[in-house]
Design a protein around this nucleic acid. Structure first.
Lengths: 200, 200
DNA sequence: CTCAGATGTGAACACCGTGAACATCGGCTA
DNA sequence: TAGCCGATGTTCACGGTGTTCACATCTGAG
């Protein structure tokens, strides 16, 4: 629909601001999010944003939440469908996490945003985390993990993939070829899985 | 001394700006670094900073580099002195990394800063990384790692500790008690070491 | 049909990074 | 020793930012 209807009331400003913000963050990371530019993009005054978000940080938090959802969708797209592939599922969660981060570095940089001041949305468990716990539970069912080693296994796993993404995007691994990054990611995810199941 | 930063003419603005910047970043992270506030703190005009740093980002890069040095010092303080403690050394590197991050979250947030525009300082290998490679080489000498598994082992290790720090500072682990964090850090570092040495 | 609440506007404030022209001062050379 | 040149710091200005507050406008419930 063409957007030249000059109504005083915009209609769904909140959704469009979120979308404009997502576009800004996508290309430039969280630093590139500008309230003024986002409002400019949707043809509205800067102050209008404050009817829907308590602050720039609140908008950023909403963006971060939307990014979590998109990552979960990406991971689910690579989700092994058959039963009895517990190891493959855990591997897919790890590699999916990293692939999303490499494909959308700007979004990934906004992954952890502290709620801050004017944020009203309830902080929830990030969807990718839910997939990780599910995959780890599957490892126990498949007897690849004991209930003992299962305890707290989320954190070594999440740490490994999140850290790798950070190293590859902003750290000393930046600039390496996609092929090399994919190989190192594979090594890292395997090491993480081996690490949590070492004494099983 | 080959150090050129000492007293060109009058004061040592460069060093004092760096120190003021370190203080700013320490409490508020990289976002809190303000060229104007740093110059204000040392009693100088904003533009004066541009005689020593090409841009705000260049100052931030210098700060980041200084933070790397401080972390390396922290790690070295926990360095097992005796020979033949290869595993302990690797463990100490990992735990030292995490402890520094938890103790100085503001500094740690500035850890990876892309050089950007007006930055002239040569990008070097971060000192903590040098300690990691040294510790891993020690693992090979102690036959706890094969030359085969040694290849690229830096990345799973660094990923794990860096990711854990991120999760604990800005991510879903924020707010957990120090005791719990220390326990999870221990678990994560052990898993990382087990992971890289799984098939040795 | 009315009017109260939700939504968007306009102007203003206090910051910020950055650049250009100008002032100052110390060390090297003649 | 005189004098200049380059390094250092200042002054002023520009355009950008988040945020607030009083005001204008629209919309839906009674």
């Amino acid at each position: 629909m063409a957007t030249d209807e000059a109504t005083y009331h915009h209609g769904n400003l909140r959704a469009e601001l979120l979308e404009a913000g997502l576009a800004l963050v996508r290309t430039g990371g969280p630093e590139a999010l500008s309230l003024r530019e986002a409002t400019r993009a949707v043809g509205v005054t800067p102050s209008a944003a404050y009817r829907h978000f308590g602050s720039r940080n609140a908008l950023l938090a909403a963006i971060s939440s939307a990014v979590h959802d998109r990552m979960a969708e990406t991971i689910l797209r690579h989700w092994p469908s058959q039963e009895g592939r517990a190891w493959d599922r855990l591997y897919a969660v790890g590699m999916g996490y990293i692939e999303f981060a490499l494909a959308e570095p700007g979004w990934f940089a906004a992954f952890f945003t502290e709620p801050g001041d004017g944020d009203r949305s309830p902080s929830r468990v990030p969807p990718p985390f839910a997939l990780l716990t599910e995959a780890l539970d599957g490892m126990v069912e498949a007897r690849l993990l004991t209930p003992q080693t299962r305890l707290g296994a989320e954190w070594p796993c999440w740490s490994a993939v999140h850290g790798f993404a950070q190293l590859a995007i902003a750290g000393p691994l930046r600039g390496r070829s996609d092929l090399e990054l994919r190989h190192l990611a594979d090594q890292t995810v395997r090491a993480a899985i081996d690490g949590v199941s070492a004494h099983s």
